[in-house]
Design a protein around this nucleic acid. Structure first.
Lengths: 243, 243
DNA sequence: TTAGAAAACATGTTTAAACAAGTTGAACGT
DNA sequence: ACGTTCAACTTGTTTAAACATGTTTTCTAA
């Protein structure tokens, strides 16, 4: 249920591009044409189009027009340049998600943990270890650190379903942005055990570390996601800015 | 040399944030204040701020203000969510870049290559293998496929320096955007040989595959970059959009 | 016929103004 | 002392208009 006009237009155009209403490498209708189509102002239309640009769906060319450069990803895995819970992305791609809680504790972070989580030492947090399955295959081992103050009443039951659903629907928290760092790390014995992998095959993991902020500007979550390497895929569209 | 007003403001604010003129978690001056500071219109200022949001530098909160959530990255490696050549990012981080051309050939892509490069079968391309060194340590093995038609006159000498510099300064091509996919792959004997790695240590590589477009909407480059895993770092800021 | 100027059309930047919606604190009355 | 209201902030959305700049087509003059 998009509330704003530009968002409605954005979604409509996006859907049309995905459904080949506009062919690859062809120009979209001009701004003036689209303004009449959607009966909106130029600014509003341009705002919608600019989001398609950052999505890597179209390419604007001054004096020429807007070119469709969308090509469906060969096999859309599960991570695109947006914030999505494991459950959301699984469903979007038609898979069966399933989560198992390995550990659910709470404690105050020590100096060492403060360094990588970003929480000040002494902060009370929930520490959760979870295993994410896709179609009954264990894919991701998650280490979650949630700020207790910001996420009250978290339980193992909630963690087994969707923590984000709890945050947004029950606590009415708004998740805003997430800074992520992707690295490759050696596989640990814990990884090996839970993901049922053999270190003589792959001996590395794809690791995504993220610091997530809510609408109060509070960093309420630090998570390290350790991905099975052969099922890991991360999409990104980078834009070259003028010098 | 920023040409537009909003870009000038963006860079000024960004620099101020990086240099702690605004403290972490503090609010920036309000829109009205900044409008007077920069003597610009509200739209122009908001445009600058919105780029800081996508950069993960600030967080806007309706009714409250704009909060600084920038924290300097522990050790800024070399890849951030922008298009940068190896040379550019190396210099930006104060390192000594150096490139060695292993192979420089040209041929027409076959069916198999067409599948992963995205170039139609039969297209004439330059195929280049390059090894990128940072401070005399081999870090990245690059497989470049350049559309010959779009990049005429490419030579091994140019490839040893900066291809992007040649594209932008000599051919006056404008690089616009790049769709990237990050994966983890098994280390090959070629990787092992050139990067001087031991497969008994890490046996994986961080692989970044990218399709890059110029301002004519033409995909002129496909590149597979194979990174030494222990020196690979990729930054990203994801924004959660309204449902 | 052709080269060049002009017109028409494309996107890019900037300003101004109005209204919407969320937050905060002061004023107010009970 | 307390809660309610209201005014004064904050950012968010939308429209309108003007000018800038790049591209294509059309017309025109040599």
């Amino acid at each position: 249920m998009p509330k704003s006009i530009y968002e409605t237009i954005y979604k409509d155009l996006k859907q049309k591009i995905e459904n080949d209403v506009f062919a690859y490498q062809e120009l979209l209708p001009s701004e003036n044409t689209l303004i009449q189509t959607y009966n909106c102002s130029r600014n509003t239309l341009r705002r919608a189009v600019s989001r398609l640009v950052t999505d890597g769906y179209v390419q604007t060319m001054q004096g020429k027009g807007v070119r469709n450069i969308y090509q469906p990803a060969a096999q859309t895995a599960f991570t695109i340049g947006e914030i999505e819970s494991f459950r959301e992305s699984a469903v979007r791609n038609g898979h069966q998600p399933h989560t198992k809680v390995l550990l659910f504790t709470e404690f105050a972070v020590n100096e060492k943990q403060a360094a990588y989580t970003g929480f000040p030492a002494g902060t009370d947090i929930y520490y959760i270890q979870r295993l994410h399955y896709l179609d009954h295959m264990p894919l991701i081992l998650n280490h979650n650190y949630f700020l207790k103050e910001a996420v009250p009443g978290l339980t193992a039951e909630i963690a087994e379903n969707s923590i984000y659903q709890y945050l947004e629907n029950t606590l009415h928290m708004t998740i805003v942005n997430s800074k992520r760092i992707m690295t490759v790390e050696k596989m640990t014995q814990i990884d090996e055990k839970y993901l049922k992998l053999n270190a003589e095959d792959y001996n590395c993991m794809a690791v995504v570390s993220s610091h997530t902020y809510n609408s109060d500007g509070v960093m309420f979550e630090y998570t390290q996601s350790r991905h099975r390497p052969d099922y890991f895929r991360f999409y990104d569209n980078a834009v070259r800015r003028s010098l």
